[in-house]
């Protein structure tokens, strides 16, 4: 793909991802697309979630534990890649990220990101989504940024997973959002 950055690290076999934000930001869908993509590559995924009894607002998070076989413990305990799309979700980083972790936040919605020795990338995710004409694709923009920066999965496989999991009418928009997300971390 044109404009793709050179991979910083070799692809990982075992890692944990936490996708966090507020309810209604599409984090569960994001987790489902990621899970679909990883398992298409032959990996084994355990996807868990934490949510409030109401469907909108409040902290929402979805975790992925990815490996080559069924994990002993399927819940995330040591997050390698963390996405934070809302200030309310910053607390979801407490105690589970380490110095090696990568944290991607939305530059506008996360005003006070977690602090530590780990790398924090504040990106214009929501702004990019609005630029595409639909703030609801912020989750997919974030997916592009995470995938590119973390070298999580082959681009083609993720795009195929997006096509299978979003409504046909919205496929092009979502694929575009994913590419824009990749571009945010492309240099």
């Amino acid at each position: 793909m044109a404009g793709m950055k050179v991979k910083k690290t070799s692809p990982r076999h075992e890692f944990e991802i936490r996708l966090s934000g507020s309810g209604g930001q599409g984090l569960q869908l994001l987790a489902r697309i990621f899970a679909h993509a990883f398992s298409s590559e032959g990996k084994v995924v355990a996807q868990s979630q934490s949510y409030e009894p109401t469907s909108r607002g409040g902290l929402s998070r979805s975790d992925l534990v990815v490996g080559m076989s069924e994990p002993d413990y399927p819940l995330a305990t040591n997050i390698d890649f963390m996405l934070i799309l809302d200030q309310v979700a910053v607390k979801a980083a407490d105690g589970v990220i380490s110095d090696d972790s990568l944290v991607i936040t939305d530059a506008r919605l996360v005003t006070d990101p977690p602090k530590g020795a780990f790398r924090v990338l504040a990106l214009p995710i929501m702004e990019t989504a609005i630029g595409l004409g639909n703030p609801r694709v912020a989750n997919i923009v974030a997916m592009g940024a995470l995938t590119g920066e973390g070298n999580l999965c082959s681009i083609e496989i993720i795009e195929a997973a997006i096509r299978e999991n979003v409504h046909a009418k919205l496929t092009n928009l979502n694929v575009k959002a994913f590419q824009e997300g990749l571009n945010l971390v492309a240099n």
Partner: peptide
Amino acid sequence: EVIGHLVET
């Protein structure tokens, strides 16, 4: 609830 809502490959 963890196992009920857990998604695994």
